[in-house]
Amino acid sequence: MVTVEMVAKMAGVSRGTVDRVLHHRGEVKSETAERVRQVMRELDFQPNTLGRAFSIAKKRNRIGIFLSAREPDFQEQIKQGIEDGVAYAQQHGIEAVIEVVSPDDELLYLQKIDEMIASEVQGIVLRGIESKAFDERLQILKNQGIPVFTYNQDVRPALRNCYVGIDSCRAGKCAALLMRQISPPDGYALIVGVTPQHKDSEKRIEGFLEQWGLAPKASSGYRIIYGEGYHDVAYARTRDVLNEMPNITGIFVSGAGLSGVAQAVYERGTADVQKIVGFDATQRNITYMKNGTVQFLIDQSPYQQGYKAVQLLVDYLFEGRAPDVSCYYLDAHIKNAFNC
């Protein structure tokens, strides 16, 4: 049986250092921590999960989970994964508190985080938002040794343990390649983002533009607008731009709001000219794809986002097992009218 002492001796560190790396307590230099983890892998070291189970059973263990209130169809898919993740947590003697908060309501988001800190949760799963005050809360969690796992929208890597979701930059490049297949060589693209503060939406746009400009002898013309992630806003702003710029041949939607964009194109009767590529295989989006208004959807594995983020946190708490990677990238599936 491999012991902590054996790991410490082989890694050239103290037993206390191994314990801090194993249970993520205190500060350990990154190169030292990686050396200890490498030795653990080489020796196939397994933490004493039975001992941790007894420890967990002796106290009330609780994790906090945040669900976004934006785009209900998409969030319902994430919610299904989170609910199964909660069942997984319960099997390990860990209860979960779920809060449904709009990412646009920063004050409420901060209030709920404060409440979770006060209730002494052992870990948190959340969707990130762009906010200095939000980052300050995450720093408090880090200082208190409370692990944070993010999904769907990331935060600064230094403020969380692991992100679960797709590689947004590569997904944006994929969308540009798809658009090039269905648009004329001299096509002009309309890009509909969520908000400039939505990090992953912006990463997808960056990836799209990088790939969009690579095609030889092709127009790299584009215009960017923001639909704020809501159907009605995306619809109105897309409608206005299409009235102003009928030369647009392709529309890339980097996140929520695609159904509003599709409605604007559908009402104009120009789906044969203005091709749409976007994200999320929600029922509303699939309806527009089946009637020919949307050509491709990139599915973000929302169920796995919810489930895996919770599972990784539970494994971290119950077994002392940290994720092998800081970003747990999920598969992005390309959907069309024949495989949705």
Rank of each mutant, 00 (worst) to 15 (best):
E130H: 13
Q197S: 14
G187F: 06
I140D: 15
D114T: 10
Q197P: 00
T195P: 05
N161G: 13
K142D: 11
P157K: 12
Q111V: 01
D154V: 01
E99K: 14
M116A: 02
C169Q: 10
A218Y: 11
K112F: 13
V125T: 11
W212P: 03
E206H: 13
A175W: 07
A118V: 01
A118M: 10
A158D: 14
K173M: 14
R180C: 03
R170N: 10
F208K: 05
H92Q: 13
R156I: 01
V194C: 03
A133M: 11
A96L: 07
L159D: 13
C174F: 01
G123L: 08
L107M: 10
I146N: 05
I146A: 06
N152A: 11
L141H: 04
I113C: 12
S201L: 03
E206Y: 14
L107W: 00
D186T: 08
P157F: 06
Y109I: 00
M116L: 15
E206R: 07
L108F: 06
L110Q: 10
N143F: 08
V148D: 08
A175T: 07
N143E: 15
I182K: 09
I140F: 12
R160N: 09
E130V: 01
K199D: 11
E120G: 02
R180N: 13
Q153H: 07
Q91C: 10
G213A: 15
V100P: 00
K112R: 15
R180E: 13
I146F: 08
G93T: 04
H198L: 03
Y163C: 02
R204C: 05
V101K: 11
G93A: 07
T195F: 10
S183V: 08
R160P: 09
